[in-house]
């Protein structure tokens, strides 16, 4: 019996983000925010997006979840801030491709930053939903939200 494979999922960067998540706060002046639930476990994430002209100026999140969903949300807030709206939406798409084990472009990798290491989630298909929750919330917020 061994847990070696778990090291691919719970790497130091992931554990760092999960225990000290970046931008975990509500943005009262957000342009949009969207809350999504992981129906299987009841976890919830709300993503807040503050737009300035066509730029994503600030991204934050609130909510509870497992190590993977918290780390992924934290990485998402780092990744999307500073991108244009189109790039940010494309960045979310690239992340979905990545965690399903697909190749993504070098440009997309640059957008994703730390989040690129969550590509290892592809090895743990049961956890893809945990990893993508925050990114789905962000994408919906970027595309209109409420």
């Amino acid at each position: 019996m061994s847990l070696n494979k778990l090291n691919q999922l719970y790497m130091a960067v992931v554990m760092d983000h999960a225990s000290h998540p970046h931008h975990k706060l509500a943005l009262p002046d957000a342009t949009t925010s969207v809350e999504l639930h992981n129906v299987s476990c009841g976890d919830d994430i709300r993503a807040f997006i503050l737009m300035k002209d066509d730029k994503v100026q600030q991204v934050s999140f609130t909510g509870n979840g497992c190590t993977i969903s918290q780390a992924s949300a934290s990485m998402m807030t780092d990744a999307l801030a500073g991108l244009t709206k189109t790039e940010a939406v494309a960045g979310c798409e690239a992340f979905f491709q990545l965690v399903m084990g697909k190749q993504i472009s070098t440009k997309a990798k640059a957008w994703l930053g730390d989040a690129e290491i969550l590509g290892s989630v592809a090895e743990f298909p049961a956890r893809i939903k945990c990893a993508t929750l925050a990114w789905h919330a962000a994408q919906e917020a970027l595309e209109g939200g409420n």
């Binding site: 019996m1 847990l3 778990l6 999922l9 190590t67 993977i68 956890r127």
Partner: peptide, 13 residues
């Protein structure tokens, strides 16, 4: 988190 525990247990069958 229960998901993290369950993934670990799953790795052990």
């Amino acid at each position: 988190h229960p998901h993290d525990v369950a993934t670990g247990l799953d790795m052990l069958g």
